[in-house]
Design a protein around this nucleic acid. Structure first.
Lengths: 329, 329
DNA sequence: TTGTACGCGTTATCAG
DNA sequence: CTGATAACGCGTACAA
């Protein structure tokens, strides 16, 4: 038995003769190592788990891809779990990963920052930590100092700043903002960038030009209808997500609005579809794939000397064709 | 120990008193069941593994989502592995799943049907079968009778037939076909549907109107350039994938072709982006998510009486706005 | 270089 | 209902 183990793992020298005999037996018997037994005995190829809302969301998929790549490069498997937006399900998943002794559990996607969120997430962090797993928050509100968790964020505010500055530089002054739902860290960051850009260009902030909603296409469609009905003065829109921008473009065009001449639009996320629509959507590029890779790297390398446990990745504007100078009214 | 096990699993009655004491200890000690040990001892919550080329492909993601949903509904975890198109990597992944004693290993995505493919895949099937795992082929060429594998396909040919018939009914006669690469089962099926539709409408088949390529956007762009340069007589295109259609639309529009007046287009797959472009793309809907769910269901229920091991799901045309009557030349 | 014996954490079995 | 004990399959000290 021990010799077989040594042949399979290559951990210790085995004579050529023995090795050959073992390999032949392995072949004859269709012998396969049992990963569970191996994990149990300590020499684990622990997996990396990623928990997200829905695999089909392009940004989630991009993060998942980064995670998968980096994990594979380090010889680990990736477990993907979808919560479909249910916090109960999230809890169950984290628990499941806990039992699996995952090396890292990566939580992806915006979350409402609340007392409840912080308490619940801190509990995840501590219980995972107690079995050697690392909790990674990807694009989520960070926890307080001292909680054993790694945070990978991106610069929501500066991305929004760049996007809105771009509109302002083109000459727009009445810019509708659709930053996303209240209390979400991403939405608040994007709104802050919007306000800061207005300020930097000496344009007053008008709360009436902020419409709340989520990041779905339906939300963009709804905003478009309000825009058409209530805000004839608006010449440009800063959308909190590409989905919102796409929904808005669709409804606006149906209503006969010519794009981008009559209405300029910038999105957020730079999903693949942004380059496929007409006009191609100018949007804020978020390095989702890199976030996934970074999450795995930080979680797995946290024993080195300068172990980082918080990273903020940069965002930048991807200029395409959905912004033009404002048309004289 | 035994009592703890009974409390945790609820497998046998335990007195209220004992149960309370166990639960308190569990809480005190942050005790978590070890899944690997549980698997080892026999009572396994075996996982379901899905092997695909790339998570960010919308159709792959849809299948993955179906798999994930159905697996979760049956209390099992999903393991996702990407091969990035490397057959070596695929082999490694299947092997890994084998070691994990996955309940099912689901291979997704088109593959070239060759002797090599059949031999390799049959080997997968048999070795997985020997440890009780089931190999499922999703949208891949089926193997011969007697190989222990489950096949979930969709009706490539009839989808193509419907799409091309739609173009013919609109009055088009010179229809360019971009069915996909040679020897791929999906591409051959789509091409067969194209030919059958022409025949049904009494239109001759012209091999010059078939351009080979893969299912990428770049391939669509390239085809568009050839179309513009070499085939002024063509009034409609049957694209083998939505990506191809999107690339084609993009280049055609850049060249000043008005869509759909001057050029009608139908795609294949019905990815989310198909509903977001302008004009909205008429395309063949493929039930990707349902394929994923079906794959899991068949793999896990194969012990019942009428155990199916081959299913062909239907496809249908999703009519949107990218087809118009041919413009007089 | 090879073989023996133990422990990893759980469940099933069997005796109480 | 409860507790002790034997698997499950592997890696690994330790002894040979």
């Amino acid at each position: 038995m021990a010799t077989v183990s040594r042949v399979m793992t290559g951990s210790q020298p085995v004579s050529a003769d023995r090795r050959a005999r073992v390999l032949r037996a392995v072949d004859d018997l269709d012998y396969v190592v049992n990963s569970h037994a191996r994990s149990l005995s300590g020499t684990a190829i622990e997996m990396v788990a990623i928990v997200l809302e829905d695999i089909t969301g392009p940004s989630f998929a991009a993060v998942a891809r980064g995670v998968e790549q980096e994990a594979a490069a380090r010889g680990r498997l990736s477990l993907i779990c979808a919560t479909h937006g249910d916090p109960e399900q999230e809890l169950r998943m984290v628990d499941l990963m806990h039992r699996q002794h995952a090396a890292a559990v990566i939580l992806v996607g915006a979350a409402q920052d609340s007392e409840y969120y912080r308490v619940r997430t801190a509990r995840y962090a501590r219980s995972l930590d107690s079995v050697g797993s690392r909790l990674v928050l990807c694009g989520r509100p960070p926890l307080e100092e001292g909680i054993p968790a790694t945070v990978v964020e991106y610069d929501n505010e500066n991305g929004a700043f760049a996007a809105v500055s771009h509109l302002l530089s083109a000459g727009h002054r009445k810019i509708l903002a659709l930053p996303g739902a209240e209390h979400y860290s991403t939405a608040e960051g994007r709104l802050a960038g919007y306000r800061r850009a207005l300020e930097a260009h000496g344009v007053g902030f008008d709360p009436k030009l902020v419409i709340r909603g989520d990041y779905t296409r339906a939300s963009g469609e709804q905003a478009a209808r309000r825009l058409l009905a209530e805000h004839p003065e608006v010449t440009a829109v800063f959308a909190g997500s590409d989905e919102v921008a796409l929904g808005l473009m669709d409804v606006a065009r149906e209503a006969g609005t010519s794009l981008p001449d009559r209405l300029s639009i910038v999105g957020y996320d730079d999903v693949p579809a942004a380059g496929a629509v007409f006009p191609k959507l100018t949007t804020v590029h978020v390095p989702y794939e890199q976030m996934g890779r970074t999450a795995v790297r930080l979680a797995l390398e946290r024993f080195g000397a300068g172990a980082e446990d918080r990273v903020v990745l940069g965002t930048h504007l991807k200029v395409r064709a959905s912004v033009a100078a404002p048309h004289a009214l």
